[in-house]
Design a protein around this nucleic acid. Structure first.
Lengths: 153, 153
DNA sequence: ATAATGTCTATAGCTACTATAGAGTCAAGG
DNA sequence: CCTTGACTCTATAGTAGCTATAGACATTAT
């Protein structure tokens, strides 16, 4: 009949507000990043201000490249304001370290590939192509040690 | 009874030679990156020298961060030695461009996160933690424009 | 003979979503 | 009142590049 409150919004409005897709919101709910929302009598999900904030938090974390698992942890920590924020610092430090490793690995990859690209500056036949030869040869390894399987995977 | 030739190897030996897991070889076969190998009477896959080279080529490409789709293309090109190697160059150039984009995006991410980390240098209560506040606030966006959804996904 | 490997197939799981199908709900226009 | 379109619902499958698991044979070592 009458809507309970006028600051309750539907999933599409929430999606627009935060800039995510509707399906993504439902996915976050399934993954436990968002609480199960209230449902209108017709079964539609209804969200309030707090839900908007929470979703925004999740998105900000994702924009920083954090894994959903890490975000779950941060959300839990956020709900315990009396606790020490050392854990937060540690988590962020670890994430920065991960980013640094990725950066170093990508940089090495690029350097190696640019070098390889230099082996075939001009257009010629594939039989003579230095790039393919480079990729075939065992000297082409990016990583010196066998036990370091490179950033594959 | 007698093995056909002694330079035929089983899948485990191939895996050891190249440094990949057995399941990965079978996966590459399913994906069409490796030919369907001969089978011994007992049904075991048997590989020869050429198969080792091909697998090594695939791995080198993967170590350079190339997608299986790109590798498929390179493998096809490799089998047409009379053709112009322009396509190879283009593919590699594109891949280098992709790596550069990834690098830039990761670098921006890291810069932003390090800055955020600086907001909570000391251990304190979560309620006051500048990191969580930063992640919650809308000023925390890494990317200025809304239509640039950041390297999420 | 038995136990430990190695191989086989087929299937499910991983991350963070995205896409699709099929159905129900709601507001506006004719 | 009926239809059209936009929105919502659930459930399932697909993406990349593997990895893990189960259950069944084959081979090798003790």
């Amino acid at each position: 009949m009458a809507k309970a409150r006028k600051d309750l919004i539907k999933i599409g409005e929430l999606a627009n507000l935060v800039g995510v897709q509707v399906v993504t919101i439902r996915y976050y709910e399934k993954e436990g990043l968002l609480d199960k929302p209230h449902r209108a009598p017709n079964g539609y999900r209804t969200y309030s201000r707090g839900d908007v904030d929470r979703l925004r938090f999740v998105r900000h974390c994702r924009e920083h490249g954090m894994a959903l698992e890490d975000i779950r942890t941060l959300l839990k920590l956020r709900e315990a304001p009396e606790r020490d924020c050392l854990e937060v610092n540690t988590l962020v430090d670890d994430h920065i370290k991960k980013l640094e490793e990725q950066l170093a690995s990508l940089q090495a990859l690029k350097t190696r590939l640019v070098e390889l690209r230099g082996k075939c500056p001009h257009s010629g036949s594939i039989a003579e192509c230095g790039i393919l030869r480079g990729l075939a040869g065992s000297h082409c390894r990016v990583w010196p040690a066998e036990e370091n399987p490179a950033p594959v995977s």
